[in-house]
Amino acid sequence: MIDIVKQINATHREIGSHPVAAGEGRSLLLRRAYDAAIEDVWDACTDRERLGRWLGQVDGDLRLGGTFQLKDNAGGEVLRCEEPRLLKVTWSFGGDMVTEVELRLTPDGDGTVLELEHSSPAEVVDELVRAYGPGGTIGIGGGWDLALLGLDLFLHGTGFDPATWEAAPEVKDFATRACHAWGAAIQQAWGLGDDDIAAGVAFGVQHYAPAG
């Protein structure tokens, strides 16, 4: 069983500013601690076989300057790789907009603090939020929440199939709560109204925790 409240509260979420290759960027930042040594967390995030057990199948050349593709998800290029503390990649679903994901690890006693920052061009994000509301951004944040939950379960030896586990009722409950948590963070960052946030949260929940 997943302690859903504990897992939700384990992650700090915020909207910030982080430069991207194109200039000014907007970012979603997630921070949480893991009860595992930094070398173990790094290996879980960079070893192809271990990635497949909590994130999904990753193909490509996983080295500095190499390219990768996460099955049925995004792909990109490895921009920085400084073992065991920093990994930076481009993250694209195709099309013209290329975003960036930076993973930062810091020792914390016997454990590790992980920061994941997903940055996109500021003008693109602001335009999308104005035109379509916060739903897409909430969905991205909720997706990363699920990934970091999966990493925690994997590091604690919980066996699951990352291709199918999101259908489990408790995981849907977690995803719903994560979308609500991102709604609060996004409302604070952009000053959006309650109706806009409610619609955005519903969009994220529909994607990650559909009924039925």
Rank of each mutant, 00 (worst) to 15 (best):
I2S: 11
D3G: 08
I4S: 14
V5A: 06
Q7K: 07
I8P: 10
N9G: 03
A10Q: 03
A10P: 04
T11G: 07
E14H: 04
G16L: 09
G16S: 10
S17L: 08
S17N: 11
H18M: 14
P19T: 07
A21Y: 02
A21V: 12
A22C: 12
R26T: 10
L28Q: 05
R32W: 02
A33K: 08
V41R: 01
V41Q: 01
W42A: 02
D43V: 11
C45R: 03
D47C: 07
R48L: 07
R50N: 05
R50D: 06
R53Y: 02
L55I: 01
G56F: 12
L64D: 12
G65H: 04
F68T: 00
F68S: 11
Q69I: 04
Q69L: 09
Q69R: 09
L70T: 00
L70I: 10
L70Q: 12
D72A: 13
D72Q: 12
G75M: 08
G75Y: 06
G75I: 01
V78W: 11
V78P: 10
V78E: 07
V78L: 10
C81G: 14
E82C: 01
V89S: 07
V89I: 15
D96L: 15
D96C: 14
M97R: 09
T99Y: 08
V101H: 02
L105W: 00
T106M: 14
P107H: 11
G109Q: 02
G111L: 09
V113R: 11
L114N: 00
E115I: 08
L116S: 03
H118I: 13
H118E: 03
S119Y: 01
S119L: 06
S119W: 00
S120V: 13
E123F: 15
V125W: 02
E127C: 09
L128M: 08
V129G: 10
G135I: 00
G136C: 08
T137M: 15
I138N: 04
G139Y: 09
L148S: 05
L148A: 06
G150C: 02
L153N: 11
F154S: 08
L155R: 06
G157S: 09
T158E: 05
T158L: 04
T158S: 05
D161R: 08
P162M: 14
A163W: 10
P169I: 02
P169C: 12
E170K: 04
E170Q: 06
F174M: 13
F174W: 12
A175N: 04
C179A: 12
H180F: 13
A181V: 03
W182Y: 10
G183W: 00
G183R: 07
A184E: 13
A185M: 13
I186F: 09
Q187Y: 11
G191V: 08
G191Q: 05
G191K: 05
L192N: 05
L192C: 05
G193S: 10
D194L: 11
D194G: 03
D196T: 05
I197M: 13
F203V: 02
V205I: 07
Q206L: 09
H207D: 13
P210R: 02
G212M: 03
